[in-house]
């Protein structure tokens, strides 16, 4: 195993182009575990630790460009206003030590269906900035996850950053694990309301071969909010709405039975989480001033 330690970003891209089998190493919270357990022996390790820019972020009024190696700790401490869903998800990652090293870029690189950041990224509608010596691509998060631990990166590409719109409505994230801290998700659910576009987006983790959205649940909720004039009135949702939303979220799952939980339980739990996060986000929306300012943007596409 050859250890590469590029001094800067162009050098990193060149190394990745020269050695497409090179596994990028940032916080090491996934890669080092695989190495220690003898599950993986890549030909090259590409240590990105010297590229400080990967650990920085830039915020504008509308978006956050989150460097791929920004640790979860900073997302929690510094970005919870702009990225509330991702910050909630980040709080559930591992232990304080893991949150100090692990990053969203690493979660995306590994692309495990159980990665905690994925549901929040799906719900927020993020874009992955993938770079190679050939140039830069902006991959919509909806197109990023291809299979279990498979993503849309080309062999010569590295993740430079993730672009996420600063939240303009309430966001929630909840995760079921069989321990009250430091646990891999049995399943997870994220919900983001986007009042300026009168849309909602969802994300489900650990309940399908990849992180997925629940399109029918989103469409149902969008339709309901639109038809009832809820975006502008801020009126409470009918009690049946949350139940139906939960059922449709569960229907988006394609779970398996494993040591962490049964498929039946995962579907059940996703329905409960969907219901609860809808209550929380809608209550937050109604009690804020957002309802008044929601204008005439087109409803759900």
């Amino acid at each position: 195993m050859e250890y590469l330690r590029p001094a800067d970003w162009p050098e990193a891209l060149a190394a990745k182009a020269a050695h497409p089998d090179a596994v990028p190493l940032a916080g090491g919270t996934d890669v080092m575990v695989e190495l220690n357990l003898d599950r993986r022996r890549p030909g090259h390790l590409l240590d990105l630790g010297r590229i400080a820019a990967l650990r920085t972020w830039e915020t504008t009024a509308r978006t956050v460009r989150l460097g791929a190696a920004v640790p979860y700790r900073d997302v929690i401490a510094r970005l919870s206003t702009e990225l509330p869903g991702l910050a909630l998800a980040s709080r559930t990652v591992g232990s304080p030590q893991i949150r100090t090293r692990g990053s969203v870029g690493g979660n995306l690189g590994t692309a495990s269906p159980a990665g905690d950041a994925h549901p929040a990224l799906l719900a927020a509608g993020a874009t992955v900035e993938a770079v190679s010596v050939r140039g830069t691509r902006h991959i919509p998060i909806d197109d990023f996850y291809l299979g279990p631990k498979r993503n849309a990166l080309a062999p010569d590409e590295l993740i430079r950053a993730v672009h996420i719109d600063a939240a303009r409505g309430p966001q929630q994230f909840a995760k079921v694990g069989t321990r009250n801290a430091m646990v891999i998700a049995v399943c997870a659910f994220a919900l983001a309301l986007h009042p300026h576009t009168r849309t909602v987006r969802t994300g489900i983790g650990s309940a399908a071969p990849t992180p997925v959205r629940a399109p029918r649940a989103e469409a149902f909720l969008c339709g309901l909010l639109e038809e009832g004039g809820h975006w502008s009135s801020g009126a409470p949702l009918p009690p049946s709405a949350a139940t139906r939303f939960g059922e449709l979220a569960a229907a988006a799952c394609a779970p398996i039975d494993d040591v962490r939980g049964s498929a039946a339980y995962r579907e059940h739990a996703v329905a409960v989480l969907a219901r609860r996060t809808l209550h929380r986000t809608w209550n937050a929306y109604r009690t804020s001033n957002d309802a008044a300012i929601t204008g005439g943007e087109p409803p759900c596409a």
């Binding site: 909630l88 929630q172 994230f173 995760k175 079921v176 694990g177 009250n180 609860r276």
Partner: peptide, 13 residues
């Protein structure tokens, strides 16, 4: 709360 920082419940259930 049950679930801890996983944010599963704020008291519901």
């Amino acid at each position: 709360l049950p679930g801890g920082l996983s944010n599963t419940t704020h008291g519901e259930g």
